[in-house]
């Protein structure tokens, strides 16, 4: 080796620093999990996991922590959002990648980029100004008493926020399908639509499901915008116009007021832990499925 010693030492130092950065980053997910788990340990001394997850009594002052209303609230709001945004994303992804002329596709992708950039709080402000009164009005027409702060409002705002996320994955999936599939199908006499329906969609199906799953995980942890429009009442919502109280909103709302009492702090950390575990399980399973699907 004909390297000057100066270059060699510099190479060594830089290499060590580079590896250190890598190790630091790779430890982050474990640190997140361990940090939150240690903090929520206090809660487990007096309550069992089943109690915490399936009891619906939430009285922090008398030491009763049932997370069921929050978990159910989260699931409802997220499912609503997915119900609204999944079909729209799928249709639009097919439109952009298969039918739309370049200029139209560019307009839509720019719109998606802008939607992706808008901060959560701004969505929240818009939700309070635009969506909440609208939902209140609809409730009025249906003859239900509601001020508009409801899981429906949360679901609508959330559905718009996850559109760019899901749509980008979907477009990527349709773009990576080999062109030959389309060509062969068309040359065999299938129409454009039959090609999409019977060939492309079938090929893309695992990817589509994965995109919806990622969207769900993403929406599940969204905090500020949902917090601002969902009403935040500790109760299991029974209808679309009922207020709910999702997990992230619980964490964001009560940190400041209750952070000083150790047991409540521990309960909030446990809430964060539930969120983290749900998101990690979703992401890990879907990644694993994608890797499996790619192999065959």
């Amino acid at each position: 080796m004909n390297i000057s010693s100066h270059r060699r030492t510099r190479d060594r130092v830089v290499t060590v620093l580079t590896y250190a950065a890598m190790v630091f980053v790779l430890l982050l997910p474990f640190a997140l999990f361990v940090g939150l788990a240690v903090k929520s340990d206090l809660l487990f001394r007096e309550h069992s996991l089943g109690d915490l997850l399936f009891s619906s009594v939430w009285r922090p002052s008398s030491g009763e922590f049932g997370f069921k209303p929050f978990i159910v609230g989260s699931v409802y709001v997220t499912l609503l959002a997915m119900l609204i945004s999944c079909p729209i994303c799928l249709l639009s992804a097919i439109h952009i990648t298969q039918y739309a002329p370049t200029r139209v596709a560019k307009v839509v992708t720019t719109a998606i980029d802008i939607l992706a950039g808008i901060p959560s709080v701004v969505y929240g402000v818009w939700g309070m100004v635009g969506v909440v009164p609208f939902v209140g009005k609809i409730a009025g027409w249906c003859g239900i008493q509601s001020n508009g702060y409801s899981i429906l409002a949360g679901g609508i705002v959330l559905s718009i926020m996850v559109v760019p996320f899901i749509l980008n994955i979907l477009m990527e999936i349709y773009r990576t399908i080999p062109r030959e599939l389309t060509e062969v199908s068309l040359s065999l006499g299938a129409t454009r639509w039959e090609t999409i329906r019977d060939v492309l969609n079938r090929k893309a199906l695992p990817g589509i499901l994965a995109a919806f799953g990622f969207g769900f995980a993403r929406a599940f942890g969204e905090t500020m915008a949902v917090l601002m429009v969902v009403g935040n009442v500790v109760k299991i919502p029974e209808g679309l116009f009922d207020p709910g109280y999702p997990l992230p909103a619980l964490i964001a709302n009560s940190f400041g007021e209750l952070g000083s009492i150790p047991e409540i702090e521990s309960a909030l950390m446990f809430a964060a832990l539930i969120l983290l575990v749900v998101v990690l399980i979703f992401n890990a399973t879907l990644r694993w499925l994608i890797i499996k699907a790619e192999r065959y």
Binding site: L26, P29, L36, K39, A252, M269, A272, L280, N283, R287
Partner: peptide, 18 residues
């Protein structure tokens, strides 16, 4: 990296606090 890429910001908030 893909796993932590999807972790919502509120969790970093809670983690940062602890």
């Amino acid at each position: 990296l893909d796993l932590i890429w999807g972790v919502p910001s509120i969790i970093y908030g809670a983690f940062g606090f602890s």
